[in-house]
Simulated scan of single mutants.
Amino acid sequence: MTLLLVFAGAVLGAPLRYLTDRAVQARHETEFPWGTFTVNLVGCLILGSLAGAGSALPSAVLAFAGTGFCGALTTYSTFSYETFRLAERKAYLAAVMNVVVSVAAGVGGALFAYTTVHSLV
């Protein structure tokens, strides 16, 4: 059953990642990968919220939303690839900013969501 929940979450998360990435990136004319940054930040906020709720959530919700949905929504591989491509094009500042801003926002977002939800549960 858990495997089906993970699969169902991924079925929703993967196309949402693609559509969100394309929609966000189409609105920016910079080489900074705003689409990937957005989906990764949203995933960090959701996963931080789920972790903050802890045992108040059934394991089925964690499998579906955490492992399945967030696992398919977020993308470390694309983040790495886009950073490498920026450096390859000699856009060093954008590459460094992608790493620094993505990691700081992701960890900060997860921490914010965790502490907020944990204080409410």
Rank of each mutant, 00 (worst) to 15 (best):
G68Q: 00
A110I: 03
A26C: 11
T115Q: 14
F79R: 01
S49N: 06
F84N: 10
T2F: 15
A14P: 11
R22H: 13
V6P: 09
C70W: 02
Y92Q: 06
F37I: 13
A60Y: 09
A53H: 07
A56W: 10
V96Y: 10
A65Y: 09
S80M: 11
S102K: 02
L50V: 12
G48C: 07
V39I: 14
A91S: 12
A53V: 05
M1I: 12
R17L: 12
L45H: 08
F32P: 02
S102W: 01
L111F: 12
R89S: 12
L12M: 15
S80P: 08
V42R: 08
E31P: 13
P15V: 08
V117P: 03
V99N: 12
R85L: 14
C44G: 08
A91R: 15
S59C: 08
S55Y: 06
V107C: 00
D21V: 15
G43L: 06
A8K: 01
E82T: 09
G13P: 05
T67E: 04
T74C: 02
R27K: 15
R89P: 02
F7E: 10
L86R: 04
G108M: 03
D21A: 15
V107A: 08
T116R: 12
L4K: 11
F32K: 04
G48D: 06
V39D: 02
L111C: 10
S49R: 04
S119Q: 11
M97Q: 12
A14K: 02
M97T: 12
V99K: 07
F64N: 08
A23P: 03
T67K: 01
L3N: 14
F79W: 13
A8Y: 05
A63E: 11
L57F: 07
G43E: 05
A87H: 11
F32L: 06
V6N: 07
V107Q: 01
F112Y: 10
T30N: 13
T67C: 05
S77F: 09
W34P: 02
V6S: 10
V24C: 11
M97C: 13
